[in-house]
Design a binder for these strands. Structure first.
Lengths: 154, 154
DNA sequence: ATAGATGCAAAAATTTTGCAAGGTG
DNA sequence: CACCTTGCAAAATTTTTGCATCTAT
């Protein structure tokens, strides 16, 4: 099977896993759409169009696997669907956060954190890490509110 | 029906809603356990013990309602269950965030944000608000990692 | 009295699991 | 060739909905 990112292939092999067709397809979806957050359903439909043999179970199993490996990250915006996006550790994905409209579910990606903010977060993570003996791997920041459209509609 | 928090009752009446027994019981669960995050199931079991007549549908409908009113807030820690906790706007609930172990699901509440951090967030919210015409109501901050126990077990 | 709210049970929707068959290293 | 993965379909879970009945106001 044609492999994707060689680093990922290597990590998989090291842990006795295999780079299969299904996994490569799903990885490509994320790599080719950085900054997008897909639900399992969406991944299924896209992957299925590429290779109609791929089933739901494989999608779920692959998403779990990639999340465990830290390649993608789970997100939930409150509509009941789990979403996934590529981790910022991967392929120069810029650090970003989300603005979620609690009315219509619209999500805006927000990247303009200043250096000041980044430093602060680094500091907080370090403190938390020590205080609670937690090995912190990343953080999720969401601002919740009402978007332009929904605000006007009232 | 004996009402709980008068402010909430007032708001409900203003919007043509009613303070029912089920709603009062559920509100009490949150008010009496500030800082805890309940799943719908947990709320159901507690409420059901207080009044066995309460059904699942009512719990879900009430949780949605209270979330819409901004009294409780939806949270998801990645285990597939939606959780709810009282909003910090309510009953002097201190502002806090969460440390989530991605291995065992354990959640630690974290409250020690400094003034510096609070100011920064206020500033960021204001900027975002203007830039994206979003009416920001609150934010969710989660740090994800591996807790003490899970880290050692490996 | 009257609209809003509830409870029950059935339906939807999402995610997980078991197992034989297939693919990767 | 060994054994990790997959696909399928069935099961488990969580959440939503319809409708007759009940109940705050």
């Amino acid at each position: 099977m044609r492999r994707g990112n060689p680093w990922i292939c290597k990590r998989m092999r090291e842990e006795g896993m295999r780079m299969t067709q299904a996994r490569a397809i799903i990885l490509n979806i994320f790599a080719g759409n950085q900054g997008e957050h897909f639900s399992a359903q969406e991944i299924f439909f896209i992957a299925h169009r590429i290779n109609p043999g791929i089933g739901f179970a494989t999608v779920y199993r692959t998403l779990d696997l990639l999340a465990q490996m830290g390649i993608i990250q789970k997100l939930e915006f409150g509509d009941g669907l789990t979403r996934y996006e590529m981790t910022e550790a991967m392929e120069n994905v810029p650090h970003h956060h989300h603005l979620v409209c609690t009315e219509c579910g619209k999500v805006i990606d927000y990247t303009e954190f200043t250096d000041e903010e980044k430093e602060l977060f680094a500091k907080v993570e370090k403190e938390l890490s020590e205080k609670y003996k937690f090995k912190i791997k990343n953080h999720i920041i969401q601002f919740c509110g009402i978007c332009n459209n929904c605000g006007e509609r009232r």
